[in-house]
């Protein structure tokens, strides 16, 4: 199994690691870098619990090879909070009860973060479309939509 030296910047910190060709990005984050806020919920790229930002774009990190992240910028849920202050999207999910068990939450947060970056004033339909690739079994999505709206309002 070939090993590759890669350089990835995760939440602003540069990591140089040696990885196998087949290592998935989610395993690099969880098993190698021990950033366990990114979750695995399905193995088939459907649930979205593993969503992270790759050069600012939301990707499901179970369908990206670690080597594909070489030389690129990653952001995970651990990167949202800055200087002890929650990001508005985090505030929104907490304040609007956009979470119950919290397992889908990191993926939802990253998808929503990417949405608000490209569309700071999304309509409810646009929010629902954006998160439709992220599954939640607890909330019925009602408060997740409200949480994103809260963050959008706060970021204005």
């Amino acid at each position: 199994m070939a090993a590759h030296k890669i350089r990835v910047t995760v939440n602003g910190t540069l990591h140089e690691v040696e990885v196998e060709s087949r290592l998935l990005l989610v395993h690099l984050l969880r098993d190698v870098l021990r950033l366990t806020g990114t979750h695995i919920g399905c193995d088939t790229t459907h649930c979205g619990a593993c969503t992270v930002l790759l050069d600012g774009e939301a990707v499901k990190s179970c369908t990206v090879l670690a080597v594909q992240a070489d030389g690129r910028q990653l952001m995970t849920v651990e990167g949202l909070e800055q200087d002890g202050r929650l990001h508005p999207i985090q505030e929104g999910f907490w304040q609007e009860h956009g979470l119950q068990c919290g397992f889908c939450t990191p993926g939802m947060l990253m998808t929503s973060y990417a949405l608000l970056k490209r569309n700071p004033k999304p309509s409810e339909t646009e929010i629902r479309q954006a998160i439709s690739g992220n599954l939640c079994r607890c909330t019925g999505y009602v408060n997740i939509v409200k949480a994103v709206q809260y963050a959008a309002a706060k970021q204005q």
Binding site: T36, G37, W94, H97, L109
Partner: peptide, 15 residues
Amino acid sequence: RRVDGRAKVTGQTLF
């Protein structure tokens, strides 16, 4: 706001 909410939005909850 639920008492365990902060840990869940920061990825600190340890499953």
